[in-house]
Design a protein around this nucleic acid. Sequence first.
DNA 1: CCATATTAGGAAAACGTTTTCCTAAACAAA
DNA 2: TTTGTTTAGGAAAACGTTTTCCTAATATGG
Lengths: 338, 338
Amino acid sequence: MTLIKVSIKEIAKKSGVSVSTVSRVLNNSKFVRDELKERVLALVEETGYRPNMVAKGLVEKKTQLIGVLIPRISNNFFSKLIEGIEEISQQHGYNILLSTSYNDTNRELEYLNIFKERQLDGIIFSVTEFKEEYNNFFKNAKVPTVFLGQKLEQQTKYPYVTIDNIQASYEATKYLIERRHKNIAIMAGPESDMATGDHRLQGYIKALTEAELPINPNWQTRRYHTIEDGYSAAAQIMMGSVTPTAIFACSDQQALGAINYLNENGYKVPDDISVLGFDDIDLATVFRPKLSSVKQYPLEIGATAARLLINQIKEKPVEKVENLVPYKLVIRESTKTL
Amino acid sequence: MTLIKVSIKEIAKKSGVSVSTVSRVLNNSKFVRDELKERVLALVEETGYRPNMVAKGLVEKKTQLIGVLIPRISNNFFSKLIEGIEEISQQHGYNILLSTSYNDTNRELEYLNIFKERQLDGIIFSVTEFKEEYNNFFKNAKVPTVFLGQKLEQQTKYPYVTIDNIQASYEATKYLIERRHKNIAIMAGPESDMATGDHRLQGYIKALTEAELPINPNWQTRRYHTIEDGYSAAAQIMMGSVTPTAIFACSDQQALGAINYLNENGYKVPDDISVLGFDDIDLATVFRPKLSSVKQYPLEIGATAARLLINQIKEKPVEKVENLVPYKLVIRESTKTL
DNA sequence: CCATATTAGGAAAACGTTTTCCTAAACAAA
DNA sequence: TTTGTTTAGGAAAACGTTTTCCTAATATGG
């Protein structure tokens, strides 16, 4: 801010009191006569003076700033997450410094170092993959931190918030099984993504195993959560001689890509094949057929993370390391009973 | 950051040089002997020392931080915008402080004041409506600023970046006219939104006028850019005795809502009625019919804004106040020739 | 009325940097 | 030699706050 000339000194001089007194008035200490208080306040009003938070931060050793590190912002799940984080943070007087990594390790580490240099009060870090390099940072810098999506390996002291991906996927698969599907494919997240890759795959396998259904590796794909990858994953799955009657896509993006592929290749959804998505994006209900999906509440996840972080910053004890946010299976038109 | 103990003083003491020398080494001034330089650098490496940017900011009077104020982040247009801003900012060593206002004036002003207190180096402000209150702030604080979407009233000194909404809407409407549509409705943004409300409406009227087509107020709605509002706007438009053969929706959200309404009420898109959207969201191609739309490049808009802002911060002269980013009419399946 | 406790408010230190101002050494020029 | 000019690097000021440490004045208790 180039031209914020007025400092606490001016206010002090013009109102004929000391700098300390102005500070006391501003931080409403009770030990100031009403007369002086009014004189100071009048000048603050008149000049439009606002305390310099950089200076304040330097002496108080806190910046009221929290760093949010996510893979990318233009993914609606993450932007809702941010919305939740921002809302709670703002209520508690914190602002957020936004950083996106595109899952690039160097960029992640770079931002973590920037967070350190900038003396941020806390970090919310969305991790998709265990990377050795993280541990090094968190071992040295004792910053209040909340992880999103999953915990960091061996990092038991920091809380994390996520949905129970294994259980959610288990329930979703079980739902399909209960609707008499026996040949169920899964389109999981990429290998690098533990939560939406490994974990959801685990839940799927658990449900199939429990129901004593065969597990067919040809019906498992690991791809990115994009429409294109959903499309190609569906193509791969439908290539075999035996085709599944249901596909469980681990994101709505993939589900939509899959439905596109299926429609283009003469399969009717859900008559020939059911498709179940994950996330329940806003647009799930405007598609035809309306998409069945495992609904997540990213706003709630973000808000929870922010609350946990602020508690840590205020040095309240960490109550729970694992914080699970609910999810909900929403059945619409893209799945049917066999 | 609670436990970043090591400061420049420690480094100075341990390496047996003065604080000034350490600072000089860190900012690679040439007037330091190689021997000392190496000693200092070794200690920096060993201790993992990182300069405190808060202190640095205080003396240098710059924070390397830019404030971004947008209506909401969970709208894909804005999150892409941020992506563009972040990319450029990061390349130039700036971080971004993210603030969302939900178009609430008080919240906007609150954030502007926070930007001031935090001594931000610059502001990118997405404005949808002219509000008197803004001028007051920008009159007093001479901060580098770039406006997004449109200029601030009478605020000629600050650059703004946007697409030419009037022209884009004019061309879109003209396209429909050329396809022999004579009865064309428009679903514009809310009254409060100049750019996607007023401006696009103006372009539409201009095209109709030029083609000497009648302008029917019953075929103009002003609603929010949501699926629901698109749905109800379509309902309103289709209520009259004469129905249009084409609807120009000023957002894809509204277009999708409209298509939903139309489908549910027995109209086929595009056979009975054409629908043209705006924005060209990622999902435009996965809908059936694939959505025709006026494509915007929010990433480019964000990047441009960031570049303009950084130029201002570096005190380069403002070259152009109005900065127009291209758009493109993308015709797919939801519009057809009569 | 005196001793003591409380209150009001100023001076100055502290926060962690950069930068200005010096001084001393080294070197070049006369 | 002497003088002047670079160069290297330390001491200290400055940035704008909060907070600690004082001191003086006032209030309280016996």
